[in-house]
Amino acid sequence: MTAPRLLITASPHLSEPDSTPKIMWHVVLSLLPVVGASIYFFGPSAVLVITAATAGALVTEWIFGTRGSLLDGSAMITGILLGLVLPAGIPLWMAFVGGVFGIGFGKLIFGGLGQNIFNPALLGRAFLQAAFPVAMTTWPVIRENWWQLRGDNLALPLMSPKEVDVLTEATPLGLMKFEQTGTDLWRLTLGATGGSLGETAGVLILLCGGYLAIRNYLNWRIPASIFLTVAVFSVLLHLIDAARYPDALFMLFSGGLMLGAVYMATDMVTSPVTNLGCWVFGFGIGFLVVVIRLWGGLAEGVMYAILLMNALVPFINRATQPRAFGAEQPKAKQTT
């Protein structure tokens, strides 16, 4: 008998086939259709902006991250997501800076993958929003000439973008908030509206997210509770004053709600670990979105709502610790 060189590993000796990099790369994969849609709508600008944001994220991860952390795919997700929430006409250097900030100050400073509090992509965007408010709120419209850049993408680093002859329009939410003008629901759901690169095609995002949810790569409870909360609040408000408050479908499909709820809020690292926590988290985001959109100074609040709830996640986790099997008060609330 040939005795093998025995290996000793820890139990369990079986494991689920999913691994962290696999999950991450699946998310990247599922983002490709959304990226495709953004390219379809915004042309070469979309490619450039998403590439620049991703490059910023990857370079930072490569320089400051731990060895091999580039391969786990998380920096890639951050980069692509950041690219998808930027306007098409933004100068590339700004997109790059956003990626650097998101990864550097949003993730690596906390110790890298798994340790961060805020969603790095959104933190990067929030930084850009605060740093370059004008560039971040200039929304180019879809052009007949697909090949034309949608803004001064190629502005020199640190320099202001030049005025480029590109038509801009307000986002559906902006139109609603500042001009009380609605937008056709078909255009909304298909994505043919002004807005960030990847946030417009709501239906497509839902499909991609559905794929991830089926594979259990995202917790469906978060988007579900966000949609539910936003829908319930908007239906109620719409019933109270239809002229002032838009209807639920508009609220759901406008702005970054789809992208935010499906891809940003569900970032595993920055969302609660307990399922009850996820419901609370989603409710909080939905509530804040409605508050900021309807009573705040900004037309869109998904990014800030998610960031604010990110900050609350440690607290939610604390408050929703599961009740151990057989512990006291068997009727206490429990996670499903």
Partner: peptide, 28 residues
């Protein structure tokens, strides 16, 4: 946390991020 960020540096950066997030309430 990386050794150079331990302590107040991290706290300040978290505070900065929180401050960024609170900008969402502008105009409320």
């Amino acid at each position: 946390v990386p050794s150079i960020a331990k302590g107040m540096a991290l706290v300040l950066i978290i505070a900065g991020s929180l401050s960024l997030a609170f900008m969402g309430f502008a105009g409320l």
